[in-house]
Design a binder for these strands. Structure first.
Lengths: 345, 345
DNA sequence: CTGTTAGCGCATTCAA
DNA sequence: TTGAATGCGCTAACAG
């Protein structure tokens, strides 16, 4: 099936020149007589010849490839981020190699091996092991050994004992602004929904949530802090649990937009109107947040900046330059219709 | 920054053996004395050595990589499909290289070049040029030249003059069943929303829609066939146009779930209840279809089968075997709550 | 301006 | 069971 590979030798022979001359017109790195160039280009074109990138990369010790390890491309947050990152990487002259770890540490390890063998020039890492509050020393060790061989950038994560370059969303500030917004709307009974315990994003947000409540002199009610993960289902469950309580909050901050959607679903199902009876706030500003009725008030992730910065930092590292150890990407509120002034009892 | 590469020569030297012996323990393709093996393995491990995949691939003329050209990973349909395909490819021993063309033909061309240079073993192609009803001869030519060098599989598309292997969703049947469902629910005024003209998916679905109406002895009303693309916005627009009509349908089939969501939004906004006042049907069964209120009745794409089949066909081709030229992946109805019996006037 | 030579890292002959 | 030699396809250094 696969046609015999054409090489520069074949082209050289047909053009009656040496392989190096062909190579020269290919790279454009040296002057070749115009007529010769023209003849060679014609033959290249006629034979549909493409230089073998493997051979080239083997020589250069560079593949111009960036590896991405992410948990799940099927999640809006990651797919958007990857899309932006890929586009920017392309501008910087790099192609992207994507690996879906499905949040499975073993798959992460496998993919890291694969990326290393494929000789990618650098790796951008998201999710999984770098999101655990308690770093697993085995995986930390693996990561350190990896980093001895190749530049790595973490997005929204860290590992204790691993001194990596990291680019982070300012989750704390986002939550802070969300709480400020609700408080300004007169709410004093506020819950927090969703998020897996032990995952840094959850803990960061919960911590900021509590701090912000304190700052607003609003008491923290632990029984309004519910949820098991980051899915719509989790939002539904948490909301259902809330509905069983005698004393219910009038507003809930959700760990992300999916959880907010689930919460909205469940509240609506049980006759509560959002935002009239209860305000629901999200996080991430995924594509659907705008459309999901009633339109979710949320915090935008600044996907462009997040992706671009991560790629930029990695490229600096690849080129052997200095790069900031930690970059915080600002977040900002996106006001829509799932939050409303508290209208009293 | 980047550490000097360790090679089998370094390992060989430290182990006081020849490079070929190291190579042998690496591949396991030849017998090596157990003690020697052990010693070499220890040294490999201690030095964190990984064989260079580029060199290996150069030699084998195989990269065990599949290239995916898709329009936009940020769309649920594609991300789900890619996820399933990648998982299956991994089982078959292949890693996946993803390229987002953004439905831009020029980017498609660039990525095809890149994939060729990176020596992927085969390519799975979705969207863009293979979805145009009117094939652009320039791109068809490019595709043909590509296919002379490397196996290609199309998913849900084709190009006139290009004799490619293709795996297709049975869109026609899905639409047919949708119409049947609505007709059985007593609806006789049915519209079709969304879809870009000239794109095969749109035309296939519209054609099937009309045939199905005929079959049900329901008249086709062209003024109820509206929409400009595949987005939520398009659904909103189309629904708004429908609302301006004196005579309105009581059910609409949408080109996909996003359009259905937009339509539901707009109908709701103008006081129509879904499904009580109007039934709205989607297509694709994306993750959110289940949750988007009131829960969208739709057609599932059978993502697993679609992705697995495409990968299987491609692998057969890569291995030089025969493979079916066209495979149709069945679709089936997913009943939820956006469709209801017509309750008369 | 062009040809010859060498080597990137690996696996596979062929000998020993 | 092991070592030496060769070549995958390419480019850069060095001559000419």
């Amino acid at each position: 099936m696969k046609k015999e590979n054409i090489t520069i030798y074949d082209i050289a022979k047909k053009a009656k020149v040496s392989p190096s001359t062909v190579s020269r017109v290919l790279t454009g790195n040296a002057r070749v007589r115009p007529e010769t160039t023209k003849k060679i280009k014609e033959i290249i074109d006629k034979n549909n010849f493409k230089p073998n990138g493997l051979a080239r990369s083997l020589l250069y010790k560079k593949t111009k490839m960036i590896g991405f390890v992410i948990p799940d491309i099927n999640h809006s947050f990651f797919s958007t981020l990857v899309l932006k990152s890929e586009a920017h990487a392309l501008k910087m002259g790099y192609t992207s190699f994507l690996c879906n770890s499905m949040n499975n540490s073993e798959m992460e390890s496998n993919y890291l091996q694969t990326l290393l063998e494929k000789q990618v020039d650098g790796i951008i890492f998201l999710g999984g092991r770098i999101n655990e509050i308690e770093t697993d020393p085995v995986y930390a060790e693996e990561m350190k050994r990896l980093m001895e061989r190749i530049p790595v950038v973490f997005i929204n994560g860290k590992m204790t004992g691993v001194d990596a370059h990291v680019v982070r969303t300012d989750e704390a500030y986002g939550i802070w602004k969300l709480v400020e917004l609700i408080a300004n709307h007169g709410h004093t009974k506020i819950g927090f929904l969703g998020g897996l315990k032990g995952i840094s994003s959850t803990e960061n947000k919960k911590n900021s949530f509590k701090l912000a409540l304190n700052h607003q002199s609003i008491p923290v009610s632990e029984e309004w802090i519910l949820g098991s993960d980051f899915s719509i289902e989790s939002g539904e469950e948490a909301a259902a649990q809330l509905l069983n309580l005698k004393d219910k909050p009038t507003a809930v901050v959700c760990v992300n937009d999916f959880v907010a959607m689930g919460a909205i679903n469940m509240f609506t199902k049980f006759g509560l109107r959002v935002p009239d009876d209860i305000s629901v706030l999200g996080f991430d500003d995924i594509y659907l947040a705008k459309y999901y009725p009633p339109g979710i008030t949320t915090v935008t992730q600044n996907y462009d900046m997040l992706g671009q910065t991560a790629v930029n930092v990695l490229v600096e590292l690849i080129e052997g330059k200095e790069a900031p150890k930690e970059t915080i990407i600002p977040t900002s509120l996106v006001l829509r219709n799932s939050c409303k002034v508290y209208r009293g009892k």
